[in-house]
Design a protein around this nucleic acid. Structure first.
Length: 158
DNA sequence: GCCAACGTTGGC
DNA sequence: GCCAACGTTGGC
């Protein structure tokens, strides 16, 4: 079992949007970063747990738990000239971009803001989310950090 | 809206 | 292969 964090702009696709999907799943298309792609393509396994993070909004933070809900497969949006994420260099016979399905698990009882997570930088040392200049939209979370952040949800550490 | 940090592109 | 220019991310 591995743990991840995935970012989404709530104006584009929010955690509530995921919950409202008929099967509560969404293909995580549009990722055009090699590091993020490699994690989805090479490391993710069905059932891995995911922190769902809202970025580029008033209070950025972790809002819910999701899970990896499919094996990796080519990102079809890269082949579609009309798609915003079209990439002419991605060849259907040798796809450049991959995705997994992300499935809804549960809301957190409260949003855990980035600002609060940063207050625990000592305990969360190495967490990519709080590393300087980090912009990865998909990142691994160490099991200890996963547990620590879930404890924050319950307010156990304030 | 600003801007720091980062990844990518492309000329050489 | 270097590196300047550019585009994007994302917190603030």
């Amino acid at each position: 079992m591995q743990y991840w964090l995935m970012k989404s702009e709530p104006d584009e696709f929010s955690f509530d949007d995921l919950e409202r999907r008929p099967d509560q799943k969404e293909p995580w298309d549009g990722v055009r970063n090699y590091q993020a792609r490699n994690m989805m393509r090479d490391s993710m396994q069905v059932g891995d747990q995911v922190f769902f993070y809202h970025s580029n909004c008033e209070v950025p933070g972790i809002v819910g738990i999701a899970q990896v809900a499919s094996a990796p497969r080519p990102d079809h949006t890269a082949f579609d000239p009309d798609d915003k994420h079209f990439d002419p260099k991605s060849d259907p016979d040798n796809p450049r971009w991959f995705l997994v399905d992300v499935g809804f698990v549960r809301h957190l009882t409260r949003k855990i803001p980035l600002a609060e997570i940063k207050q625990h930088a000592e305990s969360l040392e190495g967490l990519p989310l709080i590393r300087r200049g980090n912009r990865l939209s998909v990142m691994p979370i160490e099991p200890d950090h996963w547990d620590y952040i879930l404890d924050l949800e319950a307010g156990a550490t304030e």
